[in-house]
Design a protein around this nucleic acid. Structure first.
Lengths: 344, 344
DNA sequence: ATGAAAGCGCTAACAC
DNA sequence: GTGTTAGCGCTTTCAT
């Protein structure tokens, strides 16, 4: 026994308890075929020796690891961090370990899937808010690892997300209901994605306007990479258009923040002169008094984790995807159109 | 061989290459005692079979796992997410896997260290921005796992962080240099911590004022939990004090954001009526035009990762702690005191 | 209900 | 330089 003092093995437990290795194993795993008396005896020794099974040996002997890979871009942004937090909570409660892989750009993505660190390391992978392409998915499936998407949709494997289209509609419809007809949109795209896909938050805008018989003015739509700075730039351009929009719909709180800063600099009052609505309802929105569509991020994480747990316990089964509802949270950044400019 | 089709073992590689298991192992690990020719032959087979060693078996046979635990509170906040991103990049480049543990409150902390998931699972643990107490540290040391702190200081083990005192001084001195003498402070404490420790960002404020012969007005100091909302509340109180401060020093960008929102609501112009400075220089600061002291977060992560890597390669050695410099980034939120109120 | 023994996939002496 | 052979710490038939 070349064991260091601090790490007792199952064999130690067995010896001290006066039973065989096999029995000790059964007792520890609550397996059948152990008398209650023996079980208690063994568990007592486990307690006394402070024994913890080596996960590596377990995995080797058993064939599965109780480990899942979490592939996530943009840690550092609220949405992604919260999502990870939600997943971690649920998984760690179930005794499943999380291997973290951060992929910020398409190259990281590619590298992850080619090196397949997941390979032989995990039983499942959770991809946060980005699609896994068909080939990648098949390779994973071949090695028997289940895949789940959190915060994004897929046709090929189970996911949990919000209905981005509905969320967008809630935001734009809110503006429309307030009488706004000239609405700017700050849309963002993800450079993480291998190829651009249809943006449901944008489509919501187009549909809502169309349904209200409002023609879309392309100069009011700005597509940009995520980031407050870009949003501020775009907002400055919006302010220059004629007639100036009376409202702005931002795809995310961060974009809205940049916009509001630009508005403040230009002396445009919110919501008197211009209304701003966004999607996310992050802490930012609260600090800012921003009207925003709330999406339950942590809960998405929790549910994704449960789906994975299910997949682990029933290999082969395919979980049903889940779409969580969103809810408009009205704060001070939106108001009816046409409020007469207050005289200072 | 009960191997599924998709997962070749080293034994498979050896057989196909026509060498023994041992030789295959040596070749794969670039160990000594393998002729270049055989090595190439083996590696070719590895390539062809798409072989990846089972980390579990490696660890079991070798005794170490090339896995480290990352213990982090408050994912979802920029600082923590960025730090994790920095660490991940470096560690994954070195082929070390990261086990993620999220601890949001003292209870999570306690649970982490008591269940010691690290136990037998990792070779090292990195604690982000929170102290590991002496007893916890000793238990970890006993099991031979190295511990490193990122984004926080410790006297008991190596760390990498910024000099919070210096950062605070840069912020407050900037205000002082602009002629401000009545300066409010928005300080935050961490409920993650087991016990409150001296806050260097606060001390910087007290010292700076003292050195300039300015008496501290306790009513200008507000301690709060992290969050823009709390900052907004505190700011409202600051505005009510008489005479009203001409500047606010916030411990973080998020706090400053809340403050600026409160100021906007109150019709107080920044920086004409009141200057705001903070610490972090997160993307928020840029979007907001906020003067802030930049701290290199990702770099702290990178360095922490390197320290761990060193510890893994030279067990027993104690890495030297590192303190990274910070730098004031002046934007539009600060200006000289006494600017005459512009007449609207 | 319990024990003996055969692996799981790999590394590391130890021979040759 | 290469092959043989024990294990690493656990799970799991298969006996008893």
């Amino acid at each position: 026994m070349r064991n260091e003092a601090g790490t007792p093995s199952l064999a130690d437990v067995a010896r001290v308890a006066g039973v065989s290795l096999a029995t000790a194993s059964r007792a520890v795993n609550n397996a059948y075929g152990v008398s209650e008396a023996t079980r208690q005896k063994v568990l007592a020794v486990v307690e006394k020796l402070d024994f913890v099974a080596s996960p590596d040996a377990e995995r080797l002997a058993r064939g599965s690891s109780r480990r899942v890979a979490l592939v996530v871009p943009h840690l550092g942004r609220w949405f992604f961090g919260e999502m990870v937090a939600g997943i971690e909570r649920e998984l760690s409660a179930a005794g499943v370990d999380i291997l973290l892989y951060h992929v910020d750009d398409p190259e990281d993505r590619r590298e992850f899937f080619s090196r397949l660190p997941a390979r032989r390391k995990v039983d499942a992978v959770i991809a946060i808010a980005f699609p896994v392409d068909e080939e990648e998915r098949q390779r994973l499936e071949l090695m028997g690892v289940a895949i789940t998407a959190a915060g994004g949709r897929s046709t090929d494997y189970p996911y949990v997300s919000i209905d981005d289209y509905a969320a967008g509609r809630q935001a734009v419809d809110h503006l429309l209901a307030l009488g706004h007809t000239r609405i700017g949109m700050l849309a963002s795209f993800e450079r993480t994605l291998p190829a651009p896909r249809e943006n449901l938050r944008s489509r919501a805008y187009y549909d809502a306007l169309a349904e209200h018989g409002i023609a879309v003015d392309p100069s009011l739509v700005h597509d940009m990479e995520w980031g407050g700075h870009n949003a501020a730039l775009a907002t400055a351009q919006l302010l220059a258009s004629d007639p100036r929009p009376t409202a702005i719909y931002a795809h995310s709180d961060e974009l809205a923040l940049g916009a509001m800063h630009a508005l403040a600099l230009a002396g445009v009052r919110v919501p008197e002169d211009l209304s701003v609505v966004a999607i996310d309802d992050s802490p930012l929105a609260d600090s800012l008094g921003l009207t925003s569509v709330r999406q339950p991020v942590r809960e998405q994480g929790t549910i994704a984790a449960r789906m994975v747990l299910d997949a682990l316990s029933q290999p082969g089964s395919t979980a049903a995807s889940v779409m969580l509802p969103t809810q408009l949270v009205v704060r001070e950044s939106t108001g009816p159109v046409g409020t007469p400019p207050a005289v200072p």
